[in-house]
Structures are given as structure tokens and as C-alpha cells.
Design a protein around this nucleic acid. Sequence first.
RNA 1: GGCAGGUUGCCCGAGCGGCCAAUGGGAGCUGACUGUAAAUCAGCCGGCACAGCCUUCGCAGGUUCGAAUCCUGCACCUGCCA
Length: 421
Amino acid sequence: MVDVLDDLQWRGLLGQSTDEAALRSALAEPLTFYVGFDPTAPSLHIGHLVQILVARRLQRAGHHPLLLVGGATGLIGDPKPTAERQLNDAEVVAGWVERLRGQIEPYVELDGPNPARMVNNLDWTSQLSALDLLRDVGRHFRVGRMLAKEAVAARMASAEGISYTEFSYQVLQAMDYLELHRRHGCTLQFGGSDQWGNVSAGVDLVHRVQRTAVHGFTVPLLTKADGTKFGKTESGTVWVDPALTSPYAFHQFWLNVEDASVDRYLRVLTDRSREDLEALAGRTAERPGAREAQRTLARDVTALVHGAAAVDAAEAAAAALFGRGDLEALPEDVLGAALAELPHAVVGEGARTVVELLVATGLCASRSAARRAVADGGAYVNNTAVADGDAELADDQLLQGRWALLRRGKRTLAAVDARPR
RNA sequence: GGCAGGUUGCCCGAGCGGCCAAUGGGAGCUGACUGUAAAUCAGCCGGCACAGCCUUCGCAGGUUCGAAUCCUGCACCUGCCA
């Protein structure tokens, strides 16, 4: 049995932490830990997935998970270093809490001898009066330290400044730790590396109030090789919700990961063993063009999030659409299944021009952008470059008398369904 | 409440009466090369009925033949003072 902490370290999941030796000895016995997710969107994204998987690794090592969805903190908003957040309506946040809960639960064990528990910080903050907050909680916080937090300091230095609302966020989150310590004996919190300030604030508060040393660590945020944002495609964030990011698009995202990062992602997002991954890295170094590592990553992570059937569908679709073979030669069922994975537009009666179709399918944001794509030589119908954007789609271009495959650039696809009239 | 400074396209940031759809950088898109990778090079990067036209430079008015640029009011941000 590999030591959890060693495993986390090897996978690159350990960032800052409170006293590491103390943390290590604490983890020698089963302990209760928590990680929190704020409902700031209707779905979790792949950045959150990293955190959930850390919780899962800890649970599998015998520790007791408390998974917090921040019904209260989500109403306030963790200060971003750049700008003030737009506050969301209470009903909206409450709805998101439910959705996130549902998205988190599948990744952990909710039954059995060591079940994960879901908690919501609204439970212990909604009835708290402002005076109680100021008298009982506020007195444990020093403004100087609060101002020193990275995000707060950044905002203080910005032209916009920071509202008292967001400034208070760290108090709420620290209270969570204290509350979970009291209620459930929680002695470890982790979070993304941007959460270090909040994690340590919680550790401090528990120490002040309970006179107990508790632990905390951060998980480095996943980055691309050049240090830039991870988890974005041109159409935005990669979500876990299949309605927001289709399983096909999800699979493609991982398949397109740059060589320099694929090994790191595999360690973070899959359960594969060290030996397994080192062997894979060796094969990748020999034949990078085969992209075996990317294929493995795409397969594992898509299966984890969307299930094995989704992997098969995504792979089959990609094989059909990116294959060198003639699209016309594809059997109808294969083609139909592949196209079904793509964003598509149904066009009725009226013949449409390529420019119109590029916009209708969402491949281009505007007609101007579509014209540009055509002018750049980056628009294709059925894998053939389009010369004239105003040309209408001809009946004899339709696959199986009905479909057309639209492509912008090398790998952005969409389907056109010209239903029989 | 007073005084000073600020608000420009996704972000940063020039512009300070016509030559401005607006310099530059970043991000992004496309092409070439390759491997649905990276790097590199080239083009693009408000909208449309696209050699032209329309709508933009916090908001609303005004001055002017003409404003992102000047004036007035309002909103918000920052700093100093009360």
C-alpha cells in the first residue's frame, strides 16, 4: 500500500501545507477532512474535478470526507484578484448548490463503512446574527492579516478596490473549518492553491478558539506547459455537465492536450499506477506522433466523467470524422452516430449559403467572422475547403441525401442536418 | 461632504478636435510545417446588404462643418482631506 501523502506528492497534487511532518503523522490514522466548492456556476468544471479526485484518493486511503457545497459562501463570493464579482440571486445559488451536490456525489463512496458526507455552510450561517458574527467570530480576526491575503492585497492595489462583502469572505470560510471541526472532528482542509489564504485562516481560527492544531494543504492548480490557464477551449470552460460540454467535446479536449502536459494530467486525473504511467511516458517519448498518452488520457477521463459508452461513441465519431476515408463511403448508421456527437443545425426548406451555415452551427460567431474564415481558407464542407462563402449548399453535396459536415480550421466540427423536405 | 485623479475594443494600454473602427502588447482565430501537439513564420482579429455603409471609446446632454478627444450634469472607482 502506497502512502497517500507520497502518492499525492508524486502526482503533483501537493502544494503548500501546514507543518508537513505533522500532517504526515496525522494521516497515519484515519482522519476527517473537508474540501469546499462554491456554487458560482451551474456546473463544476475540470478544475474542480482535480479536487474531487484528491478527496476520493483520501477516502480510499481510509479518511473520512466532508464535501462542502458553499450555499453561504456562494452568496458572498471569494474575492478574485482582478475584479469584484457580480452577486448572484439567492434562489439561483440554491439551485446551483443542488446541482453541484449531484455532480460531486458520483465520485465518492456515499455508503459502506466509510461514507462521504455532504455539508452546506448555509446550515450554520443563515441563522447567525450580524452582532454574533462581529462579537464571537470577528474578534478572532486581525485586519492586518486579512489585508495581507493575496487576493485582498491585489484588489487593494487595484483601482477598483474591494468591497466589505468580499473582504469578509475569508471570515465565513474560516468559520466553516471551525464548525466542521466542532461538529465532525474535522482536522484537515485542502483546496486549490488560490485557497491557501482561506485554508490557513481556518487553521488559525480553529487554533485560536479550540486550541488545537489542525492541518491544511493546497493542490496546485493545473496549468498548461507555458503556465497559462488550463481547462479552456475557444468556446469556453470545459464543464463536467454533459449539457454544457458534450462528451464528444470533452473527449476531444483531452485528446488535444499538448505533449508537454499530458503526463502531468495523467498523474492528476487518472488512477493509473506509477509504473504504468512511467512505461507510457517512455512509449510516448519514442513515438510522440502516435499520441498514445493523449488517447489514454482522453479515454480514462471521459470514462470517469461520462462513462465507458461515451468513450466508445466519442472515439467512433472521431474515427469516422477525422479518418482519411471518404465521408461518402461511411455507412449511414456510422455517419449518423458520428454527426450526432457534434453541435448541429437543422436547416429546412431554404437553401443556405456556407456563411449562413457556419453561423447557424455556431462554428463562427458572426457572418463577418464566417466570411473571414472562408477568406482565410479555413472553412470546409465535407472536408473540402470552401472557396465561395456565398455559395449555397447543393443537394448533391449532402451525405446520405441529408447531412453535411462543416469544419472550421483543423478540428472544429459541426453537422448540418438538411431534413428531407 | 470637499479636493485631485480615473472610466478606451476579451485583457493591459496608447490616443487628447479632423489623417480613428481607433497605435502597441497579450489572449484568440486561420494558413504553412507536423501528429486533431509544441515551437516558428504569415494573415486575421466591432457589425453588415463588405472597394461601401453602420454602430462603438462609463451614461445623458451640449459646443463644433466635424468629438474617444472640448463643455455641463450623472454614475462608478482610487487617493488625500473632513
